Simulated assay, not measured.
Amino acid sequence: MVTQEEIIRQFRKIAQNNQYIRLLNIYKGLPINNEATIVKIESTYIEVETDRYQTVCLFLDRETFIQSHHLDQTIKARIYKVDPQHTRAILYGFESIPSGIGDRTQVRVEPDEPILGIVQVKDAMSTIQGNLADISQNGVGFFIDRNSFSPRHLRIGSEITISFKLPEGNFSEKKNSATLDSGSDPMARFSREQIRVSQVVQNRDDNRPKTTSGLKIAPFNLQIRGQIVNVRPSLSSNLYRIGVRLFNDEQSKIILSNFISLRQSEIIRELKTRYDAITKFNQQDQPSP
């Protein structure tokens, strides 16, 4: 276990060498990971300057994960104060944690609205309903009520078929919403250049003519085979979270990729809106001179 004194010593060395750290938070399934400069160090806390969207996550989560090639381990920190207008925050309560945080190989997003999933376990007669927790191109997580949980059927290694309907999306609206700002903002570049729909997939049964107002991504009924890879009870609710690795065909991969890209755009736009709201609130909360 690395002591507080040792962690602070490592931070001092990083600051003296004009090096940066990275802060990691997860916002609605999307990793928000930006550089941060250490601007002040005391015996029990540090003050950092970082990206504006990172400060939104710090404000909401009240914790973050610190990573650096110059740190022996990932460090978890609590948030004492956030100044979003100046993109600064004070971090304290440091503790080292096992590696693996932020090692996702695939982007995972949480749906904006509940998506109902129907689970059919192989060789079982009945089905189980649950809400999707998050979606990646090769996997989904879903929540089921404890009363519906069957440890005999829903165990690691069980083969299942999951059916769900992705909501309709508007390509032109989502594409425009991704372009938040111009200039040197790295999150804006990310949303503008990387978060885009690679293909617009039309429902084969949808013969409506295309309009000039924007292409529609129609809702899709998906039925995909998969295998349960983890089962975790929720400590804060009467639910189980089931993680599933999907055995996708090419069409399903395209559909999921499109949905994830659109959802990424929405999340980045929401971060900007939240940043503006938090900054405005803090300005109003300041005492008059």
Rank of each mutant, 00 (worst) to 15 (best):
V2T: 02
E5L: 07
E5H: 02
E6F: 11
E6P: 06
I7Q: 07
I8K: 04
F11I: 10
F11S: 13
K13A: 08
A15M: 12
A15R: 15
Q16P: 03
Q19P: 01
R22G: 11
K28T: 12
L30S: 03
N33D: 11
E35V: 08
I41A: 03
S43R: 15
S43D: 14
T44G: 04
Y45D: 00
Y45F: 12
E49K: 15
T50L: 03
Q54A: 05
V56Y: 10
R62C: 04
E63C: 10
E63W: 12
Q67E: 05
Q67T: 12
I75Q: 00
K76G: 01
K76I: 02
K76M: 01
K81A: 05
K81E: 08
D83N: 04
T87A: 15
T87S: 08
A89K: 13
F94S: 03
S96Y: 05
P98S: 02
S99Q: 02
G102Q: 12
V107A: 06
R108K: 14
R108N: 07
E110A: 13
E110W: 07
D112W: 11
D112R: 15
P114Q: 00
P114R: 15
P114F: 05
L116Q: 14
I118H: 03
V119H: 10
V119D: 02
Q120G: 12
V121C: 11
D123W: 08
L132G: 02
A133S: 05
D134G: 00
N147Q: 01
P151Q: 00
P151G: 00
H153M: 10
L154E: 00
I156R: 15
I156F: 11
I156W: 06
L166C: 02
P167S: 11
E168P: 01
G169R: 02
F171K: 03
K174S: 12
S177Q: 13
T179I: 14
D181R: 15
D181V: 06
G183A: 07
S191L: 06
I195N: 13
I195Y: 14
S198N: 14
S198I: 07
V200R: 15
R208W: 08
P209G: 07
K210E: 05
L215Y: 03
L215Q: 02
P219L: 13
P219K: 04
Q227A: 00
I228N: 10
N230L: 09
N230D: 05
R232G: 01
R232T: 06
P233D: 00
S234A: 10
S234W: 03
S234C: 13
L235F: 13
S236L: 01
S237A: 14
R241F: 03
R241D: 10
V244H: 10
V244T: 07
R245M: 12
L246C: 04
N248S: 14
N248E: 10
S252F: 07
K253M: 01
I260S: 10
I260T: 04
S261D: 03
L262R: 08
R263Y: 09
Q264C: 07
S265V: 09
K272G: 09
K272S: 08
R274V: 04
A277F: 06
N282C: 15
D285I: 11
Q286G: 02
P287E: 13
